[in-house]
Amino acid sequence: MALQIIEGCVNCWACLPLCPSGAIQDARPHFLIDAEHCSECAGDFADPQCASICPVEGVILDGLGVPLNPPGSLTGVPPDRWDVIRTAIQAR
């Protein structure tokens, strides 16, 4: 099993030096995880390191494609709040 970085990653570099397997690549448009090398930190750390420091919700997925940091989990902003604000800004 391996984790995956998807679109939405802002290339902030926080995860890259933490990876015990050296599986994170400085790629564009966003960083990538080399599935062959990712161990999900098993045996090294209790929690996957990339997902533990990533500041952006929803951009790191587990082996089943489920976000490790679902919407709202990092910022505390309720997911529907964005739509409310977007509508409010457009209505100005």
């Binding site: 802002v10 902030c12 500041p55």
Partner: peptide, 14 residues
């Protein structure tokens, strides 16, 4: 210095 080790409620990393 792009990386951060905390989140503040007044900051958006995106």
């Amino acid at each position: 210095a792009p990386a951060c080790n905390i989140q503040c409620h007044y900051c958006n990393r995106k």
